[in-house]
Computed example of a mutant assay.
Amino acid sequence: MKKLLIFIILVSGTYQAALAQHASDQEKTEVSQSVNMTEEEKVNHLINYLRHLSGSVFIRNGNEYSPDKAADHLLSKWNKHKKKVKTAHGFVDRLATFSKTDEPYQIRLKDGSTIKCGDFLNQELKRIELQSSFLE
């Protein structure tokens, strides 16, 4: 019985070490992927970042939309115009900042504060580009 218990402890420790190594490898993979992001990947990241902004509200032309609807809207604009808008910065500045009526898109965050969508997405874009520059 003692040998079985020692075996279980050893196997458990090895298993935990393997899990920790896998998590470390996963983080390294995610980091290296962020370093090499294409402009399209950056745009997709921004759209998904908005999509997963739980508890927030997207405001377009005075109407409120869920983050999911907002992301779908911006994705459709991106798909329609990506041949003309080639960069993530162009996406934010030309497609994700204003509606056709020149009214700024806004986001009401979970804490109740409101920010212009363009400013919000530019902050995230700067963050991922800064992270990439540190990792190169």
Rank of each mutant, 00 (worst) to 15 (best):
M1P: 11
M1K: 13
K2V: 13
K2H: 14
K3D: 13
K3F: 06
I6G: 02
I8Q: 09
I8G: 06
I8D: 02
I9M: 11
L10A: 13
T14I: 11
Y15E: 04
Y15A: 10
A17M: 12
A18S: 12
A20G: 03
Q21C: 04
Q21K: 13
H22G: 07
H22N: 11
S24F: 09
Q26M: 09
Q26H: 09
Q26Y: 11
E27V: 14
T29C: 07
T29G: 04
S32C: 11
S34L: 07
V35L: 09
N36Y: 10
T38A: 12
E41F: 05
N48I: 00
R51E: 02
H52P: 09
L53H: 06
F58K: 02
F58Q: 03
I59K: 03
R60V: 06
N63H: 12
E64D: 10
S66C: 12
D68G: 05
K69A: 14
A70L: 03
L75K: 03
N79C: 01
N79V: 03
K80S: 07
H81A: 14
K82M: 05
V85M: 01
T87M: 03
T87Y: 02
F91Q: 00
V92R: 00
V92Y: 00
V92A: 00
D93T: 10
D93H: 06
L95H: 01
F98Y: 15
S99Q: 05
K100D: 15
E103C: 06
E103N: 09
Y105C: 09
Y105S: 04
Q106M: 12
Q106R: 08
K110T: 07
G112F: 11
G118E: 07
G118V: 06
Q123A: 15
E124L: 02
S133W: 04
F134K: 13
L135F: 11
L135A: 15
E136Y: 03
